[in-house]
Amino acid sequence: MLSSIGEIGLNHYLILSAALFCIGMFGVLMRKNALVILMSIELMLNAVNISFVAFSRYQNNLDGFVMVFFVMAVAAAEAAVGLALAVAIFKRFREINIRFFEHLKG
């Protein structure tokens, strides 16, 4: 698969995308800080963007680029709402570790 080191093909981009996605998933599972969990979700969304752009480039098709725009807009919206929620939770509990509000009881 990676035999041709000198040539960069679609598979290199897809492997990079998979690795980045799994690092983000590892962060979501492993960290207990709500902010770092949001950052890891951004990493996962960017991994998906990489594979969209790579497929779009190698298949000569512009639809993937448009999809990347939508993913970016939704990711920005998600970050805004997630951070607003984090601020609200911090005002209520004085704590950002998800261990302390896992029951979501008001």
Partner: peptide, 9 residues
Amino acid sequence: ILASALAVV
């Protein structure tokens, strides 16, 4: 990319 992503986590 991978080193800084690992640093994030």
